[in-house]
């Protein structure tokens, strides 16, 4: 009889351990948006679910952000040429891409997807809000992005500064806008796009020395375009600073 009575101790002990473990973990979760608040973009649902299943929201947000960058870097009219598939290699006429502005109607939805996956992705908040407000002239949507960021990081005061700069941009107040942005770009997570804009606004409002300094930080930018522009701007600004002093 003895072995039979002790045999049940093992499953009983196992069950007790299991219940104790699950009781301890009851209600514990990481503070991320729930699945019900999903902001998946067309065709991205399965991919996002895959990242969630692997417990890799941050990497999912990174991938979504890379897709956003690729979308934003694509030319708005890249599919307008009806003969695109019929050119002999090397003989296609040089395309006339629209390089400035652009509507990018999916930008907001894509940015929201990034922030649903990782609302603590500060660089993405700065980048999306900056691109919407200053490049695409969509300040209301930019403020909406900042609101999403603020909901998850309410103590992030640099979101407030960027919001203020966006508000000043409506009134064409370059100096005040530059002053607010100057404090935003102190953040290591601030994108080079905002640094470039701050330098430009400082130059526009006559603050050449500060513009020169900011362009100096852009010389090492991973974006070759920003680095080249910074070098060119510094050459223009140097005599202006010398002249002023």
């Amino acid at each position: 009889m003895k072995p039979a009575s002790t045999a049940w101790l093992l499953p009983a002990g196992a069950l007790a351990c299991l219940l104790a473990a699950q009781f301890m973990a009851e209600g514990k979760r990481l503070p991320y948006p729930g699945v019900s608040e999903s902001r998946t973009f067309a065709g991205s649902g399965m991919r996002d679910a895959g990242f969630l299943a692997f417990g890799a929201r941050r990497l999912g947000a990174d991938t979504a952000f890379i897709e956003l960058l690729q979308y934003y870097a694509s030319h708005e009219n890249h599919d307008e040429d009806p003969n695109a598939g019929f050119y002999v290699y090397g003989l296609a006429p040089k395309p006339e891409w629209k390089m400035e502005g652009g509507d990018y109607p999916e930008f907001m939805a894509r940015a929201k997807r990034v922030l649903w996956l990782d609302p603590y992705f500060r660089f993405a908040v700065f980048y999306a809000a900056g691109a919407l407000a200053f490049n695409q002239n969509r300040p209301q949507e930019a403020l909406e992005i900042l609101d999403i960021g603020r909901k998850w990081l309410p103590k992030e005061w640099k979101y407030d500064l960027l919001a203020a700069a966006i508000t000043y941009s409506k009134g064409q107040e370059s100096a005040r806008q530059a002053a607010e942005l100057d404090r935003v770009i102190e953040d290591p997570d601030a994108p080079d796009m905002l640094r470039q804009l701050t330098a430009f606004l400082n130059k526009k409002s006559g603050n050449y020395r500060r513009a020169y300094e900011i362009y100096g930080t852009l010389l090492d930018s991973s974006n070759a375009g920003y680095a080249a522009n910074a070098a060119a701007q510094r050459k223009i600004l140097k005599p202006l600073i010398d002249k002023a002093s």
């Binding site: 499953p11 196992a14 069950l15 104790a20 301890m24 973990a25 990481l30």
Partner: peptide
């Protein structure tokens, strides 16, 4: 959630699985 939860949780869950396995 803290290591005070993660570590005991892992230990208890592993114990439960191994006890069932031994059984």
């Amino acid at each position: 959630p803290g290591w005070g939860i993660a570590l005991p949780y892992a230990l208890l869950y592993i114990c439960a699985c191994l006890l069932f396995s031994v059984w």
